[in-house]
Amino acid sequence: MIKLKNIKKVFRTDMVETTALGGINMEVKDGEFVAIMGPSGCGKSTLLNILGLLDNPTEGEYWLDNVEVGKLKERQRTLTRRGQIGFVFQSFNLIDELTVEQNIELPLKYLGVPAAERKERVEEIMRRMAISHRAQHYPQQLSGGQQQRVAIARAVVVKPKLVLADEPTGNLDTKNGREVMELLSQLNAEGTTVVMVTHSQRDAAYATRTINLLDGMVVEKTQL
């Protein structure tokens, strides 16, 4: 599903040039659950942003479902992302003035799904995530675990092939963290490819494979 060839990412300012990724080569197959680990500043989030088409690499090739997407323009990246990739963030990134239901509905709207179908799919995913009773609440009215469940519901409501999770349990307690990881595992078991960035060995244990990064390079691959 994903194939990276010598991906480099360099951030430049007037004064400094920082190499975040120094030439990444990796592959993720359909249905895999891959954990990316490494110390702070090693390039994990940068790699995830490139995988999620939120950013372009400076150099290299990124093949997603056999299409080279590394050099797409902003608009093409957006259209490619729609319905294909779901995101889960450490800080949830829910929209404060939208209700739980509206937050989950958002990607469906951008995908052009008719209103009746949207309603059905949102209700279904809320039931699955056990947050139906919170449908009309605003994010500030929810606990961290509930917010992350909403975020996961929003990520998967369009039934994407790929879910990218950036430290999904970073802001959660152990119990809630475990629940979130089980949800992601369940999704993976149902066929969704998951790529997760994490610091946590415990969370990484849910993955089928771990990629270790150090200073912008893949240093070791471990097959579990």
């Binding site: 999620g52 939120l54 608009r75 957006t78 259209l79 992302r81 729609r82 319905g83 995101f87 990134n93 829910l94 929209i95 404060d96 003035e97 958002l106 990607p107 951008y110 995908l111 929003r154």
Partner: peptide
């Protein structure tokens, strides 16, 4: 908010 919307596919 704009960023989040864009991540989820808004043009």
């Amino acid at each position: 908010e704009i960023g989040i919307r864009k991540v989820f596919g808004s043009t």
